[in-house]
Design a protein around this nucleic acid. Sequence first.
DNA 1: CGTCAAATTGATCGACTTCAATGCTCGTGG
DNA 2: CCACGAGCATTGAAGTCGATCAATTTGACG
Lengths: 271, 271
Amino acid sequence: MNRPIPNSEQAVTGMTAPLRRVDAGDRTSISDLLRLMGAEGDAGADSDRYPVSSRQVQAGSALFHEGGVAEAIYFVSMGSFKIFRTAEDGYEQVLGFVGRGEVLGFDAVWMGRHPMAAAALEPSRVYAMPSKNIFTLGQYVPALDRVLHLAVSRELTRRGEIADLMAAVSAEVRLARFLVHLSERMQASGQSPKHLLLSMCRRDIASHLGVAHETVSRSFSALADWNCLRVSNREVEILDMARLKALSRSTRGSTDDMPGRTPPSHRNARG
Amino acid sequence: MNRPIPNSEQAVTGMTAPLRRVDAGDRTSISDLLRLMGAEGDAGADSDRYPVSSRQVQAGSALFHEGGVAEAIYFVSMGSFKIFRTAEDGYEQVLGFVGRGEVLGFDAVWMGRHPMAAAALEPSRVYAMPSKNIFTLGQYVPALDRVLHLAVSRELTRRGEIADLMAAVSAEVRLARFLVHLSERMQASGQSPKHLLLSMCRRDIASHLGVAHETVSRSFSALADWNCLRVSNREVEILDMARLKALSRSTRGSTDDMPGRTPPSHRNARG
DNA sequence: CGTCAAATTGATCGACTTCAATGCTCGTGG
DNA sequence: CCACGAGCATTGAAGTCGATCAATTTGACG
């Protein structure tokens, strides 16, 4: 997610007109997919005969729609996506953001339909593996089965962390946790953990954190005020990781103890 | 989850002393597991030779701990569990509740350690499948691989729904959504969707919804006041499903439109 | 029957939502 | 090249909902 984009491709996040502008699938080797997902061993000589194609998705367009028939599961090879559900009144509940090396659409396997939509936040690319071939492919190419298991397991963990985000007491803490998560993922993928270029707009972040988008804005300002961050639009520089992490650890009172947790400004802050 | 328990086994939810009181594993047939998970075809003659054991977990004790080494993944055959993370100060963040036919611990596969703990809310039983055998077993017993895929996919969907719960504007709406989910799961498993016997305490619900436990209590009272529910401790009867579902559909304003949404029923309520 | 945890209810204060207005960025077209 | 518009972002003001502290009741279990 939020890869440092050279020429600042901006995400289109309106999502009210999710037209589907997708290039035709290019044939790709399974080995490419395995390499992307970090599998060491090769897949065998026949890898190329199995149906794994590559698809490009432009910024703002949907990879699949909520309720749509599950045709494939996807592995993100470039760019990033948001996954979300749309309420009757049009409100978008953002469930999460998915980046390179992560899996999309597996939650549709059990019911044959996508429980949520996915839309690209920037020009992106995915490998597509037809749903109907999941089981047979897994049997023929064990390495693929393994890769799928691992990716899905990781995704399961990530989804569990949503609760940590949204349950935090204050809006600042939620934002802090979000940024720490982001930073850790940046580091895991070998990039600078201190310089983030957000691929999503404030509104999407707000939805994901369960607050109003104005509150996200205010929280950014607050974190900047107590010298945790430097914020310029979608560029975020983490100035004080220690304090940010400390802040992100704040919890709702343990019910038995909960002393005076002065929100983390303290002495030198903003003055 | 929340199965109607004859003699009201109560959940121990303190969880501050998660002693591990677990019976030795009984050898069980893979066919039993497949039957539990709704797989029609049998597993083949050799099923019984593979290591799938059954374990009993008593109310309040942990099936596995946060950070613990992943020894197996589990399929719940009886009872229910809560999954949760514990903060440094002891606060328990409840990620979800897991019942019969659902999978536990798969999120540990990718990193070899459990990202969260699981504790039984009532006397429960699980099938345990050693983590190290997941891939090989899947290769030898395709039906098992298939069952696992489906169960994990379903769990992924369920985790995604956490956000819907916790992002709701008001506490009453969150509780309404929680109850509707519960009700639908009851119905899916062939039980009455109107009579719920909660296996978890208010505090766990509160944590799961991201509010204080007092607020959960007040929300129950409120829903009872506008004749949606009849509540008696952990027994909940849904009186007006239509209104409950309508309420659960309330969203944070779509930002472009959002007229006067008078909460649920009439305006006389404490206004 | 007495103890302890769970659950309910009340009162107060702070934080967040909401409404509203302005500034900023970027893409488009004159 | 610059002006303009559209969506994004920031900031302000006011009302409301929920967290927190606190007291009481109910229920479970020895």
